[in-house]
Amino acid sequence: MSETPIAAPDPPPGLSELFLAFASMSLAGFGGVLPWARRAVVEQRKWLTAEQFNEAFSFSQLLPGPNIVNFSVIFGSRLRGPAGAAVALAGLLGPPLVIVTIFAMLYTRYGDIPWLQGVLSGLAAAAAGLIIATTAKMAKPLFEKALATRSLDAAPLVALAVFFAIGILRWPLPYVLAVAAPVSIALAWFRR
């Protein structure tokens, strides 16, 4: 088991160091923690090489649930066992949880004030735009590949079908995934 892609650095960082690392990347991570996680773990502390980070993160994306949360658990447990997983998770979620709860209280109390409602409406419109940009960036390689090969690749069709079922028809996610996931994985399996 010494050949694991996430080799623990020697000596492994202490629990408080682990907590601080995840707390600081979480608080810096505005609109997504991933770039900060890479910077903190790979560039600053050199706990992982870039390749190890990519491997660990792609695995985190594969698991269900929030990716960066999975990453903190996998990474923390690899370094310091169950305590490491708990500490990394607490560092990642604890501080933002406190901050966002305060925001929630303020919103409940002052959310109806016209000028604040105006600001929030502006932010909401921008947030929607950023998700559209993310979608376009993610979808680009998928559709480019299909256009370049001029073949009717199934992957873009799967993406469109999921979009239609969830975004337009508003079907419940579990039902859609129960059909789409096996189909899409089978298509990927037989692709070559």
């Binding site: 792609s58 594969l62 909401a124 947030a127 929607a128 735009g129 998700i131 559209i132 993310t134 979608t135 993610m138 979808a139 998928l142 992957a155 873009p156 799967v158 993406a159 469109l160 079908a161 999921v162 979009f163 969830i166 975004g167 337009i168 996610l173 995934l177 789409a180 996931a181 899409s184 994985i185 089978a186 298509l187 990927a188 399996w189 692709r191």
Partner: peptide
């Protein structure tokens, strides 16, 4: 196969998020 099979599903879901939020 699981890894590449889930990619188009994620994209479809995030596209739906974009529509609903917009």
């Amino acid at each position: 196969a699981i890894q590449s099979g889930l990619v188009p599903i994620s994209i479809g879901l995030i596209a739906a998020s974009a529509l609903i939020l917009a």
